[in-house]
Design a protein around this nucleic acid. Structure first.
Length: 404
DNA sequence: AAGCCGTGGTT
DNA sequence: TAACCAAGGCT
């Protein structure tokens, strides 16, 4: 791991010059060798025992003055509700505060307690999640609620929380710290960014992720942080969200600016570095919108596993790497009709881009066979049908064509 | 363990 | 526009 910042002596304690030598030397080695098993353990020790961490009190003072007011956040010194903390943490995984807000309120209204959530139908939970993305979170949320009820409440340790579905290293630490006052540092994208800047770590993600987590774990070692584990964790989130932002951090306002090696070296805005990414492949699919005289649209449910698992979709082809020829697609049409070409919907998933061609038609009524291939729903209910965003786009495009 | 899993906002 | 990114987890 390459860490910048003047002489090793100023940055690392004198007792650990050997560690500094190891760290400097490591820059010259291949990443694979550097993170080799034995060496990695030695480095974890050296890092946690030798790295000078910034004063937690400075951050906490800043937090007390500038902390954000969020729906799931309790008042300073107030006790947090574990159910609310957990629910918000799951929703906030890879999801912005702004997007979560309405979902969080709706969810609490529908499922006010973990018992209510556990007792609910899974489809109702999925429905309340529709549009938020990463739908495995909703399935795991429901399963987790049932386990929590069976356990008689939320586990109050990181290890106990880690056993629950949908809760990984980050969420376990976040719930433990925020809901139960356990002095741990949850490492999310904010904390990775802050840590890489504080210690001027120039090696790229995702390879350097483990090393950043080790460095981050040392951030709460002083007394001030130990006294306020919940506030310290949330202070890091707020710092990452409002000052130590990805593109143009406001280093001049940062309570840790005098302790930040990245800032001192003038490279803070460029951190963390990332390995060059590969281009996303394009996949091609066709989807069909059919409406009968009663204003009903034919839909179907996707398979239980895989992309958009168990969510609702328009009937259509699979999504393949080769574009579909006109002649290939008729067998996939759910009914015989005068199909009108509506255009293309482009949708970007994490690992590929989908170009979905949409065809639309009207029929007087659906045959039993057609209905058996899926289910019918009033087209006026499209907004409330628990549809993934992609399908909402396809339907809107199809409706536009039919209306003409 | 690298690939899979959504969506919306920003630059 | 295309890339980037958000309080990541699972397999």
């Amino acid at each position: 791991m390459a860490r910048r910042g003047g002489s090793g002596g100023a940055f690392l304690s004198l007792a650990c010059l050997e560690a500094a030598a190891v760290l400097r030397g490591a820059r010259l080695e291949t990443p694979a060798l550097f993170f080799g098993a034995a060496l990695s353990e030695r480095l974890s020790f050296f890092i946690t025992s030798s790295v000078k961490t910034p004063p937690a009190q400075s951050l906490l003072d800043w937090y007390d003055r500038h902390r954000r007011i969020l729906p799931w956040r309790s008042g300073l010194g107030q006790k947090a509700d574990p159910y609310c903390v957990w629910l918000s943490e799951i929703m906030l995984q890879q999801t912005t505060v702004k997007a979560v807000g309405p979902y969080y309120h709706r969810f609490l209204e529908k499922f006010p307690t973990v018992q209510a959530l556990a007792a609910a139908d899974r489809d109702d939970v999925l429905s309340a999640w529709a549009g938020l993305g990463y739908y495995s979170r909703a399935r795991n949320l429901h399963a987790c609620a049932q386990q929590v009820v069976a356990l008689g409440g939320f586990p109050q340790t990181v290890a106990g929380l880690l056993n629950l579905p949908g809760i990984g290293a980050y969420t376990a630490a976040a719930v433990a710290a925020i809901a139960f006052g356990v002095p741990v540092v949850p490492v999310d994208g904010n904390v990775e960014r802050i840590t890489s800047r504080l210690f001027a770590v120039e090696d790229p993600l995702p390879g350097v992720r483990k090393a950043l987590a080790t460095l981050a774990a040392g951030l709460n070692k002083d007394k001030a942080a130990q006294a306020r584990p919940s506030d310290f964790a949330q202070a890091l989130f707020d710092l990452g969200a409002s000052l130590c932002s990805p593109r143009s951090p406001a280093c001049g306002l940062c309570p840790w600016r005098e302790h930040c090696e990245g800032h001192k070296a003038g490279i803070a805005p460029t951190l963390p570095r990332r390995a060059a990414k590969v281009a996303k492949p394009v996949r091609y699919g066709i989807h069909f919108l059919v409406i009968d005289n009663a204003g009903q649209v034919l839909l179907r449910k996707r398979p239980e596993k895989g992309l958009l698992a168990a969510m609702t979709e328009l009937p259509g082809t699979d999504w393949r790497m080769e574009p579909w020829a006109q002649a290939d697609i008729l067998p996939y049409a759910p009914v015989q009709a005068e199909w009108q070409h509506c255009g293309m919907v482009k949708h970007v998933f994490t690992h590929f881009t989908l170009e979905a061609m949409v065809y639309a038609a009207r029929v007087s009524h659906f045959s039993n066979q057609a209905v058996a291939s899926g289910f019918l729903a009033p087209v006026t209910d499209v907004e409330t049908l628990s549809l993934p965003s992609l399908m909402l786009k396809c339907i809107k495009l199809g409706l536009k064509t039919l209306a003409v």
